[in-house]
Amino acid sequence: MRPTNLLNLTLKEFASLWRDPAAIVLILFAFTFAVYTVSKDIKTEVNNAPIGVVDNDNSPLSRRLTDALRPPLFRAPIPLTAQTADTVLERGQVIFVLEIPPSFEADLLRGRKPGLMLLIDATAMTQAGLGASHVGRIVAAEVADALGSPSIEASLPVRVVPRTAFNPNHQAIWFVSVMQITLDLTILSILLVGAAFMRERERGTIERLLVMPVTPMEVALGKIIANGVVVAAAAFLSLQFVVQAGLGVPIHGSVALFMACVAPYLFATAAIGILLATSAGSMPQFALMSIPVFVILNLLSGAVTPMESMPAPMRMVMEASPTTQFVALSSAILFRGAGLAEIWEHLAAIMVVGSMALALALLRFRAQMQKAG
């Protein structure tokens, strides 16, 4: 490769991107408004879950249980009857319905073991699972306190003392904000580089470039470098001003090391974008092919669900994904303060996959040019 050719092609791509206001608006939107709103609005913990109570006992203890279900975990309980409980649950107006049977307090005082029924709308999976455990814990604590008996935990011979590392308040916003930046890096690098390649093909300028003393590698790297620099700069500013300043997410690791890892990751995903562009016949085809690619890369990367919950064959396949490796090293660097010694294997895997994707894309590109010639 000739450095002068690569520099000129990179500058040409910068100019092309600057003349594309839609792409600039998309980058600004993705790394500002999208990061902030998604991080604020997507919550994996229970928060203001709607709950109703069917109080058939109307005793001091049943009212105490109702009062204990309060914000921020639950909204103020809605008084219900046995006839209306199923209706509001089916309409999605509440996620939980706690039904307290008649003579509940009296049976407890007589030494009996009455049961409480908790109806759950499990279509809201995260709220349902976590909320049910919160309801059970609240009920057990209030009943034990009302009867003057020790709690279940206090009666056990072993005491568990949890110590939460890296996210002591269990705030989903810490994780979601960084993972949203990862998602934006993936989508924009694939779309911008692939779309730039497709525009060259559709306008016929790619053939003009190749009759000049430039190589396909120089053409591809010019697009990767120009778009990668812009996307990486936007990610850095988003991390500084949106994630840390706007959302108040503390970063414990080295931002410089994280940004150094962003470069090979953008190289890998941009190479995938070029590979998709060489496989598509038009811009709409490229867009349709790109959507399932970055959706799968994101959903099965460990950013949404843990890798350990996947079937073993799928987990082995996704280990080869650069997004999976980048999600792992991002969490390690930004949250756990890991250094290069801890993340070099992830970095090497990203470089290998990116080099293979670019090599395959260039092979397809050369074959298409030879066929066209």
Rank of each mutant, 00 (worst) to 15 (best):
T126N: 12
Y265C: 08
V243H: 02
F326D: 11
A141D: 12
A154Q: 15
G131L: 01
Q93Y: 08
S62T: 00
P284D: 05
M351W: 06
I24A: 14
P168C: 09
P102Y: 05
L299E: 04
W18I: 10
L6T: 06
E218H: 09
L340C: 06
F294M: 09
P162V: 03
M307P: 01
A30I: 03
V242M: 09
M1F: 13
V262K: 07
L239C: 09
M259I: 10
A233Y: 01
L130E: 11
A367W: 08
V352G: 09
E142S: 03
I343F: 02
V327I: 14
A165M: 15
F286V: 06
I42T: 11
A234Q: 10
F236Y: 15
R75L: 15
V242Q: 05
F236H: 12
L26C: 11
H346F: 03
L334I: 09
L210N: 05
T305V: 15
M314N: 00
A122Q: 11
M310S: 04
S330T: 14
R199W: 02
V219C: 07
V35T: 10
A23R: 12
G373M: 12
D121E: 10
A154H: 09
T164R: 15
P168K: 07
Q285G: 13
A359K: 02
Q93G: 05
V139F: 04
A76L: 13
G281Q: 08
R137T: 14
V25R: 09
I78S: 08
Q240S: 12
D57K: 00
P114W: 00
A260Y: 02
V139H: 00
P306V: 07
C261P: 02
A341V: 04
R208C: 08
K43I: 10
S321F: 09
L297H: 04
L156E: 15
A367C: 01
V214H: 02
T81F: 04
L147H: 05
F197T: 10
A144P: 00
S62Y: 00
D121H: 07
I27P: 03
A270Q: 06
S321L: 02
E202T: 10
S238K: 02
V176E: 03
A154M: 08
V214W: 04
P71S: 07
T126P: 00
P322S: 09
A303N: 08
P311G: 07
P313W: 10
P264H: 07
A196N: 11
V35L: 11
S16D: 13
A233T: 08
I24N: 11
A280T: 04
E200I: 01
A260D: 04
V262P: 11
M117K: 10
F96W: 04
M307G: 07
A263E: 06
L61R: 03
L9K: 05
G92I: 03
S321I: 08
R112W: 08
A359P: 05
L28C: 14
N5Q: 13
I350E: 10
L266C: 14
E319Y: 13
F166M: 06
R110L: 13
I27K: 05
K371L: 13
V35A: 11
L210K: 07
L130C: 07
A196D: 07
E200F: 01
P3A: 11
R137K: 14
I42K: 03
Q93K: 12
Q244K: 12
T81W: 06
V211T: 13
N47V: 09
I251D: 09
D107I: 00
